[in-house]
Amino acid sequence: MSVEQLGQALTVAAAGRVGSEAIQDIATAYIDFVRQHPGLYEASFHAPDRDEPQLAAASTVALQLLLDSLQPYGLSEADALHAVRGLRSLCHGFASIGAQGGFAMNFEPSASLHFTISSFLDGLKQRSKDS
């Protein structure tokens, strides 16, 4: 199942860690999965059908991994879910642009990904300080 494979790739990338390093590695693994398995990714992209227990369980594993990785940021439950959506959107957008050849400049895409994720995480840190 494509969702399980993506979840497994993200779990391996996090390797039991949380926080910025884990999230950077999760984002990289996400992009790599899309590059290596575009058809599988496309099949896993939609929201899970809650009437399919195996699919719902696989999606829950990936969601929980991301929530656990964001735990050091001290976000409320709602904010953590918003952050997961944001992170997923960043990764999806980055992967989609890359797949369409949108990063043709002589500039390393992995450095751009790291910069983007770092900026996103810096925003989460500031948000938790402001709360």
Rank of each mutant, 00 (worst) to 15 (best):
S2R: 00
S2H: 00
S2I: 02
E4N: 07
E4V: 12
G7F: 02
Q8Y: 10
Q8C: 05
A9H: 01
L10W: 01
L10P: 10
T11F: 03
V12S: 06
A14W: 06
A15W: 06
G16A: 05
V18C: 14
G19C: 08
E21F: 08
E21Q: 13
I23V: 15
I23P: 03
I26A: 03
I26S: 00
A27F: 02
A27W: 01
T28G: 01
A29I: 01
Y30C: 02
Y30F: 03
Y30V: 00
Y30N: 02
D32Q: 06
F33V: 02
F33W: 01
V34S: 03
Q36G: 07
H37F: 05
P38T: 00
P38I: 02
P38G: 05
G39D: 15
L40G: 15
E42H: 09
A43M: 12
S44W: 08
H46C: 07
H46D: 14
H46K: 12
A47R: 13
A47W: 06
D49P: 15
R50D: 15
R50K: 13
D51S: 14
D51A: 10
E52M: 09
E52Y: 08
E52Q: 13
P53E: 08
P53N: 10
A56M: 08
A58W: 07
A58N: 11
A58M: 06
V61E: 14
V61G: 08
L63H: 13
L63R: 15
D68E: 15
S69R: 02
L70P: 12
P72H: 02
P72K: 01
Y73R: 08
L75R: 05
L75N: 02
S76N: 04
E77S: 06
E77M: 06
A78K: 06
A78E: 11
A78T: 09
D79R: 06
A80D: 01
L81K: 11
L81T: 11
A83R: 02
A83N: 07
R85I: 07
G86T: 08
L87Y: 05
L87W: 03
L87P: 01
L90A: 08
C91I: 04
C91G: 09
C91M: 10
S96Q: 13
I97L: 15
G98Q: 08
A99M: 07
F103Q: 12
A104D: 13
A104K: 09
A104C: 07
F107R: 14
F107E: 15
E108Y: 07
E108D: 14
E108A: 14
P109E: 00
P109C: 01
P109Y: 02
S110C: 07
S112F: 10
H114T: 13
F115S: 09
T116S: 12
I117Y: 00
S119Q: 10
L121R: 04
L121P: 10
L121I: 09
G123D: 05
L124F: 09
Q126W: 12
Q126Y: 10
Q126R: 12
S128D: 14
S128V: 11
K129E: 15
D130T: 14
S131I: 14
